[in-house]
Structure formats: C-alpha cells, structure tokens
Design a binder for these strands. Structure first.
Lengths: 245, 245
DNA sequence: CCCGGTATCCCCGAAAACCGGGAGGGCGGC
DNA sequence: GCCGCCCTCCCGGTTTTCGGGGATACCGGG
C-alpha cells in the first residue's frame, strides 16, 4: 500500500496502455525491461513453449538473458526437467521460482537446473505462465540475483506479463509461418471425423468420397506429420492446431 | 489517468489482496459485486465451461444474475450459439460484448441470444475469459443496461477477474467430484501409449503385459467412456482429463 | 512448360484393431 | 461372504486400417 507500490502500479498500467501502439518487438522489449529493471530484475524473457524435442532458442519471442545460459540450457536439455516450466503446466498464477513445489521424481535434475541458473546470475526469478484456449503456451520470466516484491507489485507484473505476451506475439507475428498450414483442407476434414471415432467408410459417406480417397488423405496426413497411425495423427494434428475440438 | 480510475485500481488491488482470506463463496461474491456495481454493472457471474450437452446452471460458481434468464438460457439452448462464449475460445483478453466479431454462420441465433439478454436488462456486458493449462475453462461475466469503462478500469477488472476465478474455484471446491476418475490406472496407461501412436503390441511390451490384456483395457475404456474406437477414446479421455499430453 | 501440390479414385495383401465371449485372483465395502 | 471392480490372460472370427503400389485431373508458380 506504499507510495512506491502505487507508483509502480501506475507505471505498469501506463505501459500496458502504451503497448498497443508499438509495432517493433525491440520497442516492446525495451519498454518492459526498463520497468522491470526498477524492481531488481536483470533479465527477462518472453518465450513460447517449445514442442517436444524442439529447443527453447527459436521459441524466444523477446529476451534479455544471460550470455551462454540459453545455449547451455538447450544443449544440456534442461527444458525437460526445469521445475519452473513444469510448474507452468499446473498453475495460471504467477509464482516466484523458490515457491515451486518439489517433485520427488525430478529432484536431482531439477536442482541442477536451478543451481546452474544461479551460477549464471539468476539466483531468483519470477514467472508469469501464459495459457490460452489451447492450454499452456509460454511464459514471461524475470530473473536476477535477488528479488523482493510486495504482493501488489506481483499483481501488477502479472497483468503486465499478460499484455506483454500479447504485444510480443503480435509484434513478432511476421516470423510465423505465412499461411503455412501443413495439411490440406481435405486432410483436416477426414482427421476431424476420425477424432469423432468415424471409420473411413463413414467419413467417406459423410463427405461424399470413396473409402480409398479417405484412406489416401489419412495416409498423406500421416506422412506429412510423421505419425504412426490415425490416433497418433489426430493427436498431433490437434497439437499443431491443424484441427480443433 | 483520472483520480477515479486510480481509486478503482487501488480498490481492485485491495480486493485481490483480501480474496485469499475468504473461505465462504458468498463472501467472495459479495465482495466482488460491491466493487463492480460501482462501475455500472448490475449483474455478474463466474461460471465454468459446461461440457457439451450439459447445462450452464450447475456450472455457475457464483452469480448475481437476472431472475429467469438462466433457466431460459438453458431451456432454449442458447449456450451453443452465444457469441460471447464462442469468443472466449478465441481470445484470452477480456472484451465487451459489443466488440465480439460477427460470425456469419451463427448470425441469426447469435443475434437472438443478445437481443433476449437485452430484454432481461443486460444490454451491455464485459467478459473475462479464463484459460488454464487445459484450455478454456470458464469466464467472468459482468452485465448491465449500459456500461462505460476506461481502458485502465478494464485492465483492473481483467486482473480482478483472474483472481476472482481462483477464489471462486477455491471456495466452491467442495462441490467437485471427490476422486471421481472414470478410468482405471491401467486403462489410462494404455490410452497414453495409444495417444503416442503405439500399437497394442508395443504397449504390451512397454508395460510388460500380454497383447490380450492391453486389448481388454482398451475395450473396457471404450465401453466406459462410450466411444467407438481407440482414436475416439483417446480424444475423449483427453477431454475428460483422464490422460494428459 | 514442367513441377509440385491437391483432389479424386482404384487394388490387394498384410497387419492391426475390434468383438464377444471366458477365466482366475485380489481387494475393499456392505 | 458376496458383490463389484480391477488386473491379468486366452480364443476365434470379423472388420478396419496400413502400406505400397498405381491412375487422372486441375491449378498455380518458377
């Protein structure tokens, strides 16, 4: 309830109001970093959730991050064990790194991730998970040697993070695939029916095609996505947003 | 940037700070309603997303909502066409009802929903969609005859909505199903492998079972969920949160 | 003008999944 | 102690899917 808190909250709201007008991702980055730096953070990053097997690097939307940490993180494969990432799957509320509950299963690797982060100057951090209609999508990470925030400031950063994500996604949108759908319309059609448990024959009837055509679409979809059977293809197509529901 | 805005923002943050200490859902309801009433809203509701075929009624966590509207809404089946609900699937940012883009497909029914809402005293509204690691979960709706909010107030309500959701979910948690899983552990195991494209034989090897056993689990899962084949079962099990990823 | 992608159809043999039975043992509740 | 559920295995027959070959046609870009 201090004046400092109020000032920070006001600045956060002003920043959010201003984000809409920015079109250069670097402007977004600078604007946000300038503000969070004021509460003790030395680093920050806005990142998408990488696909399994993918690295974090190409999924960073914006970042001011310790030299070398990222490549090390990817090389060692920390991502799979990072307790902060794992916690993002479980919570929508922002959290400080040291508040993440321990998972006995991953304890040794998890501890290693956090220790190595500390060695890179990130002894403490704060993370705002981002979720949308399709689930966990990414997050905003803030880190530094030591951090202290009042609950009110944490809330302001929560809100800031949500809008920062939108702004980062919007301003870096040009990097995304152009119209780039992997599957054709028909392939998506048959997969949608498959997801409803339809056989090829039913799908053929419903779409007015021959069973062979439906089979061809399923086969092509399999080979495009690189999946093993229809079930696998449907799941992956869903993850890739090629089909919905 | 007005004083009124600042006051509202401060009150919102105070309210959020106070939510943690409430344990009675009615306290949460009253606390929030008192605040939103001050910016012209006569009604508000916090609701889970109903499963397909389910009604909204039992999914309301908290609500101050026009008499009769809810039962009418359920009876007529407005839910399927409600453009506000549909928009929640597409956006994470809060929005005013009149900002929802038109969907040509649903135009007649969608218009009807909005007109009937207006007749029930809800000529305008504001909605905060709630998404978690599993996607769109529900939302906070605010409504009244007419509303006007500055961007800053909208942001404050955004944040308020997120924490109100947590508080509502927490305080009404006792209503939820006790441990109620539909599938057995083994059934979930085999479905998880199926989702990765494994054949029954591979799954059997991986789990150290016979193919017949795996088949039995798949069969039982099918009959429990009421699905038509493995693909369908996996998709439904995913929707029912029986399996993840 | 050719190439790549899409949309549509065809065939066939092999592999996998599905169906509807059984069956035995364990474990927890009423 | 019985009933219900879970875990595990088995069988025989039917349906569906998979894999790998085809084919024809359209359409748009380099």
């Amino acid at each position: 309830m201090s004046d400092a808190d109020d000032a920070f909250i006001r600045q956060s709201f002003d920043l959010i109001d201003g984000l809409d007008s920015l079109s250069d991702p670097l402007d977004v980055q600078k604007t946000i970093f300038d503000l969070v730096a004021r509460c003790g953070f030395s680093y920050f990053a806005i990142t998408r959730l990488p696909q399994p097997g993918e690295r974090i690097g190409p999924n960073l939307l914006l970042s001011v991050w310790p030299e070398g940490w990222l490549s090390h993180y990817d090389r060692v494969g920390h991502y799979r064990h990072d307790p902060v990432v794992r916690h993002c799957f479980r919570t929508t509320e922002p959290f400080a790194w040291n508040e993440v509950p321990h998972e006995p299963d991953h304890a040794p690797q998890a501890r290693r991730v956090m220790e190595e982060a500390r060695e890179h100057g990130m002894g403490a951090g704060y993370c705002v998970p981002i979720h949308d209609a399709h689930g966990f999508q990414g997050g905003i990470s803030l880190a530094g040697e030591r951090i202290e925030m009042t609950p009110r400031v944490r809330r302001a950063i929560h809100l800031l993070g949500l809008y920062a994500w939108s702004a980062a996604a919007r301003t870096t949108a040009r990097h995304r695939k152009p119209g780039g759908r992997l599957l054709s319309a028909r392939e998506r059609d048959v997969l949608s029916f498959a997801a409803q448990g339809r056989t090829r024959e039913e799908t053929a009837d419903l779409l007015g095609l021959s069973v062979e055509t439906v089979s061809t679409y399923l086969r092509n979809a399999r080979s495009k996505i690189g999946t093993r059977n229809t079930t696998h293809t449907v799941i992956e197509a869903l993850r890739l947003r090629e089909i919905v529901l």
